[in-house]
Design a protein around this nucleic acid. Structure first.
Lengths: 184, 184
DNA sequence: AGCAGAAGCGGACTACAGTCCGCATCGTGT
DNA sequence: ACACGATGCGGACTGTAGTCCGCTTCTGCT
């Protein structure tokens, strides 16, 4: 990438973060972003491909940090703890992240092709590995897919129909579910 | 509703069904729908509120039929069978419906307020009732929410990242999950 | 330094969802 | 039968995501 291009990319991300605080993810328009960065709209799309791509880029660092913590951080999230405990910790962290950055994640979710799918793939694979390590038998690929769906559920809109479900209850529910699934 | 209005409503639904076959849900635009029905665009929005509302209306009959089958049809979907068997049957039916009408459901999902949320609420409640009947202990509201998420998962886009998961495997995975959860 | 081609840029343009409001049509009460 | 308020209608208008292409700027090479 050319030097000016990467400077522009940074300028766009900076502008995006600022707008995000000012108006929120929902209201962030690409025209506004381009204008705020003092650039043309074409440039925004060249850099990020789509509106969702902007949010994926903004989330990138957090995702990377999370993956690092999972792969080589301290237990129980990282390696070393009992697999079922790691499953529980993984879900609790993920749900907390969703509660904090749900707006960004929702805005990024529309992106099918770019990195939007990668975190989900990572999560699914990790769940599968932990299930296997926990000695769970069965079609672990599908089971991991199902558990991923549970973790992503709070992102989806039908949550609005269940306003009584606090993050705390969801997290405890996750722990309960994991223990049920992993029961010998 | 005035007679002409309800005639127009039917004309719109007929046109929508035709366009659906011709171009698919994804490509169905509101301008095209209005034109195909020989009506103005404003009329479409007056009748259905939003693009998603059109799809909700198209799904309405199927949803009603499904709910009837659940509430008063023959077992194991309807009442009379063992609750765990009913859970299993419920999920299998729902997943099959998703596989068949996924495009419509996805297009209808954007609707938060209208009937879009109602089928989810019905499903969640029904799952909760069956879990209780099966003697499952714990926070059944959250557990039902989680199981709903599993059933809705195939709608979400990240499915594309898991192309190997056939409807058959998903359905068997559901049955497996339900039995794990309901184990005494 | 200067050149050539690659990479990048901007903003006009398209397509689409959703809004708005002046005009037309309906149907009810008399 | 008619009048008049309520209901509905159309299509121009707005705001936004995403595309396109002629022009500009960079950069590696000589």
């Amino acid at each position: 990438m050319r030097a000016d291009a990467s400077r522009n990319r940074e300028a766009l991300l900076r502008a995006a973060r600022r707008l995000l605080e000012e108006v929120g993810a929902e209201e962030l328009s690409m025209d506004a972003l381009a204008a705020a960065a003092g650039l043309g709209k074409g440039t925004v799309f060249r850099r990020f491909g789509s509106r969702a791509g902007v949010f994926v880029a903004l989330l990138d660092e957090s995702e990377r940090t999370f993956q690092q913590a999972v792969l080589s951080g301290p237990p129980p999230l990282g390696p070393g703890a009992d697999p079922v405990e790691r499953l529980e910790a993984f879900g609790r962290h993920r749900l907390r992240f969703l509660a904090e950055r749900g707006d960004l994640l929702r805005a990024a979710a529309a992106d099918l092709d770019r990195t939007g799918g990668a975190p989900a793939a990572f999560t699914r694979l990790h769940l599968q590995v932990l299930l296997r390590a926990a000695g769970v038998r069965g079609d672990l690929e599908v089971l991991a897919f199902d558990l991923l769906a549970v973790l992503e559920a709070p992102l989806n809109h039908y949550v609005r129909g269940a306003p009584g479900l606090s993050p705390q209850r969801l997290a405890d529910g996750w722990a309960d579910l994991v223990h049920r699934v992993a029961r010998p």
